[in-house]
């Protein structure tokens, strides 16, 4: 499944999607950035409630296919602009991390 397909499921809001064709092959949930870098795998959807600028760097370096912000977490406009520049897909959802992971899991 691609990020575009995930985004069109009606469950998730698109904050930015510069790389819609990125493939998704799993999920990692975490808010501690070094844990994410240590454990998330390339092409995972990364579900988090962190929203600071460092999230973009971590998403880029970890090569995750998409950041999914749970619990309706929002991003400052400068963070969003950086995400677009760096080619990082960002979706959001009112769901909890657990519920969001179940939805993604049911689709891949």
């Amino acid at each position: 499944m691609t990020v575009k397909q995930l985004s069109s499921s009606g469950q998730f809001n698109i904050l930015c999607m510069p790389e819609p064709e990125r493939e998704i092959d799993g999920v990692y949930i975490g808010d501690l950035l070094s844990w994410v870098m240590g454990k998330a795998e390339a092409d995972n959807v990364w579900i988090t409630i962190m929203s600071n600028i460092n999230v973009i760097a971590v998403a880029s370096l970890s090569d995750v296919s998409c950041v999914l912000l749970a619990e309706d977490v929002t991003l400052e406009s400068d963070v969003l602009n950086t995400a677009k520049e760096k080619g990082i897909n960002i979706l959001s959802t009112p769901l909890s991390a657990y519920e969001a992971a179940l939805k993604v899991s049911g689709m891949i």
Binding site: L32, L33, S34, M50, N54
Partner: peptide, 15 residues
Amino acid sequence: SLGFGAGMGLPNMRR
């Protein structure tokens, strides 16, 4: 509070 300082930096570098 920024999500760092979890004590995983050097271990990740080694990993």
